Simulated scan of single mutants.
Amino acid sequence: MDGVNGMSGWRWLYIIEGIITIVWAVMTVFLVPAHWSTAYFLTPADKAIMKVREEQMESYSGGTGHYTKQDILLAAKDITTWIHAPTQVAMVTILYGFGTFLPIILKFSFNFSTLEAQYLVVPVCIWGAIVYFVGAILADKYNARFWSVIICAPIGMAGYAILLVYDVSSGARYFATFLISTACYLCTGTNISWLGMNRAPDGKRAASLGILLTFTNLGGVISGQIYQTDASPKYTLGQAWSLGSLAFGWCGMWVLRTIYKRRERQKEELRARGWTLQAGEVWTDRVPEFKNQF
């Protein structure tokens, strides 16, 4: 559409994307129910489950549905919050760097034209979406979020290692982008999911995710600095930093698993002794009744 009505193609891209966003936003007003009780897509059995879930969530947050400073303190005092956060920074650094600069890398490192680079990004992103979709289903079904990252992250590391070598064929380097795509999307989303499901009550979960997502934005800042214009065509700093970030995140997941496993062993011992929640005791993810997920 370059030149249509005297406007550049990139302008039309933003206009079309903006129109789709606005139309979809208006549609959600009519399509998304305000409450589970009015959700047209829920069966009576689903609504019964939602009712129980809502009652339990309200009891966790004091029965009012509002979060307090105590929830924020619970999140801030949990050491795993501060391990999930830098791990997410590392994962998001490769997500932003790879997602934003892949067309530029393909153009200047692989000597493709601008149009060819844009086209070649599509299969890589589709592959990443497929891995994300399948990985999320398997991780949820088999309660294996930790293993989804531990398996996929080294695949992404291998991809960055190939790009760092540089003196290989364009085909091999293009294949490396698929290896990176295998890791960067799934690893980022899995870390968020793993944190959320190991938090209770819901106020602590919200505060923990808030802390995590606040740190997440640092990944975007970092990724914008490591892929520099004068580093073309090898982009050694960007590829090496991304490789290191992925390795750092991989190690962080092992640390988190160790902590969660240790907590679960302690809870099992208390459950075996017949532990019960005492009057006035706050129900959180640290009580033996709550089972950590992996």
Rank of each mutant, 00 (worst) to 15 (best):
S8T: 06
G9Q: 05
G9P: 00
G9L: 00
G9C: 03
W10N: 11
W10H: 13
R11D: 11
R11S: 10
W12D: 00
W12T: 04
W12F: 03
L13P: 09
Y14G: 07
Y14W: 08
I15N: 07
I15K: 05
I15Q: 07
I16L: 15
E17N: 13
E17L: 15
G18A: 00
G18Q: 03
G18H: 01
I19H: 00
I19W: 00
I19T: 03
I20W: 14
T21L: 11
T21E: 10
T21F: 12
T21C: 13
I22H: 05
I22C: 04
W24F: 12
W24N: 12
W24L: 13
W24S: 14
A25C: 10
A25T: 15
A25K: 05
V26P: 04
V26S: 09
V26R: 08
V26M: 14
M27N: 01
T28P: 00
T28V: 04
V29K: 12
V29D: 08
F30A: 03
L31E: 07
L31A: 12
L31P: 01
V32L: 13
V32S: 08
P33M: 01
P33N: 05
A34G: 15
A34K: 15
A34T: 13
H35M: 05
S37V: 11
S37Q: 15
S37W: 08
S37F: 07
T38Q: 12
T38F: 07
T38H: 09
A39W: 09
A39L: 11
A39I: 10
A39G: 11
A39M: 10
A39S: 14
Y40P: 07
Y40W: 15
Y40R: 14
F41I: 02
F41W: 15
F41C: 05
F41Q: 06
L42N: 06
L42E: 10
T43R: 09
T43H: 08
P44W: 05
P44G: 03
P44A: 06
P44N: 05
P44V: 03
D46M: 02
D46I: 02
D46Y: 04
K47P: 01
K47T: 02
K47N: 01
K47E: 03
A48D: 07
A48K: 04
I49Q: 11
I49Y: 12
I49V: 13
I49D: 11
M50W: 07
M50F: 08
K51F: 08
V52Y: 10
V52R: 15
R53D: 14
R53P: 00
E55F: 06
Q56A: 13
Q56L: 10
M57D: 13
M57S: 11
E58Y: 12
E58P: 04
S59P: 04
S59M: 10
S59K: 14
Y60W: 14
Y60G: 13
Y60D: 13
S61A: 15
S61H: 09
S61I: 06
G62R: 00
G62K: 02
G62Y: 03
G63N: 04
G63K: 01
T64W: 01
G65R: 02
G65L: 03
G65W: 05
G65V: 02
H66N: 14
T68Q: 10
T68F: 09
